[in-house]
Design a protein around this nucleic acid. Structure first.
Length: 325
DNA sequence: CATGGTCAAGTGGCA
DNA sequence: TGCCACTTGACCATG
């Protein structure tokens, strides 16, 4: 079992202002709290906006993002964290209709390709599991053919990065999305999803996973099962989302149903977060994520890798209270 | 150099 | 109708 976090390391990134503003307490361990300089900021989200897009700048940002990713992985290793979600912003605008590019045509392509191999090698050597979770704009089930086309391209771009890291083509390095666009018509959305899934590159198909939604009219774990049966796509169980969309299953039932969709030999991934509203003393839970974990999180005896989706990132990993039984 | 307005993209749900 | 939520705050122009 590994416990990981998503995209950003606050300690290295010095990004605790949000936590400070909303809770009044600083993390105490980021570079700002320790008196460091902004220059030393380590993060992998360097991006740009379309208006100022410049391929040379983007290429340099990618180099810096990959350098910092390796720094973060080393920090993780030092702190016994061997599971991390990579930011889709590491390669800004890569799949954009007008501004998109191939990695090979970037000015720093050689350096970037080398760094990707080095990151992959480091992850394999130290058994770090790296995953992607492309943004909510990826809707494979959309009725809009342009949206589907862009989604296919973006997912393939993500998969290509894992290929360049030298990873096997399995959901060990998953690319996770939601089914999307089916609140009024589950059957139609599932059909379109299955149809469009066939259009993805094979390596992308082999890495794709589906996550249960956080809205009652959307897709519970049970609602995703027909898609799993048609495509073999494993299901990622999100504990927090399940509260808002149970599909009539208990937490344990939904967890174990999702686990049953994973291939032998690959540890299933689950997502764990808690309600921000409850954390701040509210009455009813809402989908927005908490800063930290308060738990306990129950595993019911199952072995999974846990992606903690809390705003305080790696700091929240250390607050996770896991109940094995 | 701090601040606030703005930023590629889809969809659903709430005030 | 507008805004927030989700992957994930960062960029950039202004003072």
């Amino acid at each position: 079992m590994q416990v990981g976090y998503a995209c950003i390391n606050q300690t290295l990134g010095g990004n605790c202002d949000r936590t400070f503003k909303e809770t009044g307490s600083r993390c105490g361990s980021c570079f700002k709290c320790l008196g460091g300089k902004p220059k030393s900021k380590i993060y992998t989200n360097r991006t740009c906006i379309a208006r100022t897009f410049d391929i040379n700048t983007v290429s340099q940002k990618i180099v810096a993002n990959l350098d910092d990713l390796l720094t973060i992985l080393r920090w993780n290793e030092d702190h016994d964290i061997r599971f991390m979600r990579l930011s889709s912003e590491m390669f800004p605008f890569m799949s954009h209709d007008r501004l998109g590019y191939e990695i090979e045509e970037l000015p720093d392509a050689d350096q970037i390709l080398l760094k990707l191999r080095q990151i992959g090698q480091y992850a394999r050597d130290n058994e770090h599991r790296l995953t992607f979770h492309p943004g909510p704009f990826n809707v494979l089930s959309s009725e809009n053919s342009d949206t589907v086309r862009r989604t296919i391209h973006e997912l393939n771009c993500h998969s290509r990065i894992f290929d360049l890291m030298g990873f096997e083509q399995t959901p060990y390095n998953k690319i996770n999305i939601h089914l999307g666009s089916g609140s009024q018509d589950h059957d139609g959305a599932r059909s379109r999803f299955i149809e469009n899934f066939a259009l993805l590159d094979t390596n992308t198909q082999l890495r794709l996973t589906l996550e249960n939604d956080d809205k009652g009219n959307m897709f519970s774990v049970a609602d995703l099962i027909p898609v799993h049966e048609a495509t073999g796509i494993p299901i990622v169980f999100d504990y927090h989302h399940h509260q808002f969309c149970t599909g009539g299953l208990t937490e344990q039932e939904a967890l174990e149903l999702a686990i049953s969709t994973w291939p032998d030999g690959i540890t299933p991934v689950v997502h764990y977060s808690e309600s921000r509203t409850l954390e701040q003393g509210g009455e009813a839970p809402t989908p927005a994520h908490s800063d930290l974990c308060h738990g306990p999180m129950r595993l019911y005896g199952n072995d999974v890798d846990i992606m903690v989706e809390a705003k305080a990132k790696e700091l929240a990993v250390f607050t996770l209270d896991i109940m094995m039984g």
